[in-house]
C-alpha cells in the first residue's frame, strides 16, 4: 500500500525512528520502530505505584479503615451533627398553645396524614377515625405520640420517626388530641377500638 509515500512525508518530521521496520509489513500495513511515548510509560509506572500504596495503606500497614469501620465512623459523625434533633429534648407533653396546634395542623397536612385519616381526621377506608372517642391504640398523649413516631407497619401506619423530630411529633399528636378529637366532622367513619376519654 502507501508505505513509500508515507515514508517521505514522515521524514519531514525528523523522527529518527520513523523508518518502516523491515519484515514488519502485513497486507500493506507497515510498522514503525518508535518507542512508546515516555509519558505513557511514566503514567503506567505511576498507576502501579499508586496501587501498591493503596494496598499498603489499607492492608499491609493497616492505616485505612475497612468498609465496616468506615461506616461506623461516618455514621457516628452523622449522629453527632444531628444529635439534638434525634434525641427527645425534654419529656414531651401535650401542648395546648395555639401556635403549637396550628403548627401541628400544618404538619398533618404536609405529611399527608389525610391520605388515610381523611381531610378532617374523619377516617377513610384505610385509616381509623381520629375524631371520635373510640381509640384502637389508646388516646393518651403518649399513645398517640408513640403511634406517630413508630407506626404500625403491619396495619399500614407509617412510622414518622425518620421524618419528624420529637417536637414536631408532639405538635401533631397535640393537634390530633386537642383539635380533631371530638370535632364531629361529616362522613365520620364508624368507631373502632375502645372508648377512651
Amino acid at each position: 500500500m502507501g508505505s513509500d509515500t508515507s515514508n517521505e512525508k514522515l521524514k519531514d518530521k525528523k523522527d529518527p525512528h520513523d523508518e518502516v521496520m523491515t519484515g514488519h509489513e502485513y497486507d500493506g500495513i507497515g510498522e514503525l520502530d518508535n518507542p512508546p511515548p515516555r509519558w505513557i510509560m511514566a503514567l503506567f509506572y505511576l498507576t502501579i505505584g499508586i496501587s501498591i500504596l493503596y494496598g499498603a495503606y489499607y492492608f499491609w500497614l493497616d492505616i485505612g479503615e475497612n468498609q465496616d469501620q468506615q461506616y461506623l465512623t461516618k455514621s457516628a459523625k452523622h449522629d453527632e451533627i444531628y444529635k439534638q434533633a434525634n434525641t427527645p429534648t425534654a419529656e414531651m407533653k401535650l401542648l395546648t398553645d395555639e401556635g403549637s396546634i396550628a403548627e401541628g395542623k400544618a404538619i398533618f397536612t404536609e405529611m399527608a396524614c389525610s391520605a388515610c385519616h381523611g381531610l378532617n381526621g374523619e377516617g377513610n377506608a384505610i385509616g381509623p377515625n381520629l375524631t371520635d372517642e373510640y381509640w384502637i391504640n389508646g388516646c393518651s398523649f403518649t399513645n398517640v405520640h408513640d403511634m406517630i413516631k413508630n407506626g404500625n407497619s403491619i396495619k399500614g401506619m407509617t412510622a414518622f420517626k425518620d421524618r419528624l423530630t420529637e417536637e414536631k411529633i408532639a405538635k401533631v399528636a397535640s393537634y390530633v388530641l386537642v383539635s380533631l378529637k371530638g370535632s364531629n366532622p361529616p362522613n365520620a367513619k364508624a368507631p373502632q377500638g375502645v372508648i377512651c376519654k
Binding site: 502507501g2 508515507s6 518502516v20 521496520m21 500495513i29 510498522e31 520502530d33 518508535n34 518507542p35
Partner: peptide, 18 residues
C-alpha cells in the same frame, strides 16, 4: 490495528507500544 492503517494508508506508529 487493521482497518485504521488500511483506511489512512499509514504505518502503525509503534510496534513496541503494540
Amino acid at each position: 490495528y487493521y482497518y485504521l492503517p488500511k483506511a489512512a494508508e499509514r504505518p502503525i506508529y509503534s510496534y513496541k507500544l503494540s
